[in-house]
């Protein structure tokens, strides 16, 4: 499974992790990982520590996630991107739009 998601014990955090390549082929899986979440004030963590490559359609998918998070007044954090992925996020200046740690 290249997209995995789990909710923390206290139910306040949803972690979505992407393995290997984050591109358009994950479109549906990625959406499914969060689209049924309608809890308010949920923390969404996108774990990119195992993502080796990301294309621009993945950036688009992150923007859709951000729209969803805002709709339910949640928080979005991108967690531990590798250097390659961080470079792509920086070129798109995503640190101006969301938290990257």
């Amino acid at each position: 499974m290249t997209v995995s998601s789990r909710i923390s014990g206290d139910g306040k955090e949803l972690v979505i992790a992407i393995d290997d390549r984050f591109d358009f082929s994950l479109h549906q899986l990625f959406r499914d990982a969060y689209s049924t979440m309608t809890t308010q004030d949920l923390s969404y963590v996108l774990d990119l520590s195992k993502t080796e490559y990301m294309d621009s359609s993945a950036l688009g998918m992150i923007l859709l996630l951000k729209d969803h998070v805002q709709l339910y007044a949640g928080q979005l954090t991108i967690s531990k991107p590798s250097d390659t992925v961080r470079k792509i996020l920086e070129i798109a200046q995503f640190q101006r739009l969301m938290t990257i740690e």
Binding site: L63, E90, A92, Q93, L97
Partner: peptide
Amino acid sequence: FISTHPPLGIL
């Protein structure tokens, strides 16, 4: 010249 702004059409 590094990118200083998110791509157009997002904000």
